[in-house]
Write a protein that binds this DNA or RNA. Structure first.
Length: 422
RNA sequence: GGAGAGGUGGCCGAGUGGUUUAAGGCAGCCGCCUGCUAAGCGGUUGUGGGGGUAAAACCCCACCGAGGGUUCGAAUCCCUCCCUCUCCGCCA
């Protein structure tokens, strides 16, 4: 959420940001009107409240002295009624302002390239060479089914489309990758947490999933809770409504969680295989930082995620998302895309973002500088480190052998206990 | 699921309708005093918002788990909800 005062004082910046993202900017004018209206009403209602406070004190005094207070009481009755009416009015105005604010995306960082869609994302670096095969490389689902390590048929019977049943070495590969990544991340100074997988509405609003993107979420009915689409949600909300001390920052967390996504609107996309599932595992990186450090922290967070692919010796590239492709709450995002021989292209395996104070303002996460009055919002960042399912895909496809077996990357062998899946 | 207790400022803790529109203590910060230290004395200490100012100072409003209600006036009375704790039941 943006600061209303910021919008008031920098309306052109906000309008410009909305246009770059392909959003309608008329909301700015509506907000400015509501804001002026709000402040006018606050002024009036507070004057009335002040009058009521003063006179009520008088009444108490007079009553003690046994004087007649009836006329004052009658006047105050009218004042109170007026306050009540104005309060109702003001509440509606505030709600309307909040609705508008919650639906305005974050402002892209100046370094973010302007563009319409993923075609306009800009590659910033590559690592590794796509492997050469002396045979036609297979899709991961063909490899997996042959090895009998993923069963899509039975998963569909149990749950439906976009679910997978991992079996044998497939299940173990999943578990090995989780442990491997968590160990890597904790060695980089991230504190491991295992959060709730169902969260309340306030948490979803805090990180920006609600109210705008409810269609993407699975929800329980009684009580009303939401299945997390990413560990970003519960982990960022760890410090919701808190005031941190400057010395506590930066805070680094890593969490393994399953993630649940409706994938509404992606019908027909990646219908086969493990790429796009309703339930998938992910290891996440989350940072809380001081504002002046957040962009350096974004760089190091991205490098931390990249290192996992380097250790696994999987070729990848890093792209910076353009304004049109940038997520709603993000100011700047690097996608890490791993090479997938079965598809002959790079596919997203991690998304590392700086949200600046956008989530912190929604979730009310602040800090106090030593020796200074007042508070500031922290900056929040997160990135996948990494998506497990897609890493499985990358390993199966990049390490496939002519005989149908799959070699396990060396760094992963201590976790897998075997060198080859056959 | 049943029964009960409780949620007050960084912490402890008083407060059941009007000099408590949050006492007192602890901790923190500042200063003073003392040639003896975890001693004494005084002051100070939150968050958000509106106004004001060149910027301050300053003035005002709100905040005692959340939201409603009663009242001239609510931490205090009433209603709904949330959370925590204890006991019972059930349970991985």
């Amino acid at each position: 959420m943006l600061d209303l005062r910021f919008i008031r004082e920098n309306s052109e910046v906000v309008r410009d940001a909305l246009k770059k993202r392909g959003y309608d900017d008329s909301v700015v004018d509506e907000l400015l009107k509501l804001d002026a209206d709000r402040r006018e009403k606050i002024k009036r209602v507070e004057e009335l409240r002040n009058r009521r406070n003063v006179v009520s004190r008088q009444i108490g005094q007079m009553k003690k002295e046994g004087r007649d207070i009836t006329p004052l009481q009658e006047e105050m009755k009218r004042v109170s009624d007026e306050i009540k009416a104005l309060d109702d009015d003001l509440r509606r105005t505030n709600e309307s302002i909040r609705d508008h604010l919650l639906n305005i995306p974050n402002i892209p960082h100046p370094s973010v390239p302007v563009g319409e869609d993923e075609e306009d994302n800009v590659e910033v670096r590559r690592w590794g060479e796509p492997p050469e095969f002396e045979f036609q490389p297979l899709n991961h689902w063909d490899i997996a089914e042959t090895l009998d390590i993923v069963d899509f048929q039975r998963a569909a019977k149990i749950a439906g489309a976009r679910f997978a049943l991992m079996k044998g070495a497939g299940a173990k590969l999943e578990r090995a990758l989780i442990n491997f990544m968590l160990d890597h991340n904790t060695s980089k100074g991230y504190r491991e947490v295992f959060p709730p997988l169902l969260v309340n509405r306030d948490s979803m609003i805090g990180t920006g999933q609600l109210p705008k993107f409810s269609i993407e979420l699975f929800r329980t009915v009684d009580p009303e809770l939401y299945l997390i689409p990413t560990a970003e949600v519960p982990v960022t909300n760890i410090h919701r409504d808190e005031i941190l001390q400057e010395e506590q920052l930066p805070l680094y967390y890593t969490a393994y969680t399953p993630c649940f996504r409706r994938e509404a609107g992606s019908y027909g996309k990646d219908t086969r295989g493990l790429i796009r599932q309703h339930q998938f595992n992910k290891v996440e990186l989350v940072k809380f930082t001081k504002p002046e450090n957040s962009y350096d922290e974004l760089e190091s967070l991205t490098r931390d995620a990249e290192e996992i692919l380097q250790k696994l010796e999987l070729p990848y590239r890093v792209v910076v998302l353009c304004t049109g492709d940038l997520g709603f709450a993000a100011s700047k995002t690097y996608d890490i895309e791993v090479w997938m021989p079965g598809q002959g292209r790079y596919r997203e395996i991690s998304s590392c973002s700086n949200f600046e104070d956008y989530q912190a303002r929604r979730a009310n996460i602040r800090f106090r500088r030593k020796g200074q009055k007042g508070t500031e919002f922290v900056h929040t960042l997160n990135g996948s480190g990494l998506a497990i399912g897609r890493t499985v895909v990358a390993i199966l496809e990049n390490y496939q052998q002519k005989d149908g077996s799959v070699v396990i990357p060396e760094a992963l062998r201590p976790y897998m206990g075997v060198d080859v899946i056959r």
